[in-house]
Amino acid sequence: MKKLLKEGPKTVNIGLRGFYDALKQQESSAIHVEWRPPIVKTDLLKRLRKLRKGREQ
């Protein structure tokens, strides 16, 4: 967090585009992600995530 306060925000905006536009209006460095919900159901995603974690460990 200290780095964030020192450098200022460099923002990945995920969601409402208006917030990204507001950052650009202030000449702050930002990128907007055109986010869409995952096609697979969230509970399946959770199981996949757990499997991935298990493999990493």
Partner: peptide
Amino acid sequence: EYTPRSLDGALSVFADANLALISIA
């Protein structure tokens, strides 16, 4: 402007990002 569709897509061109602003459901 380039508008990625994923977080990793965004970070591939904006590697020094330090904050995510999330406003999805």
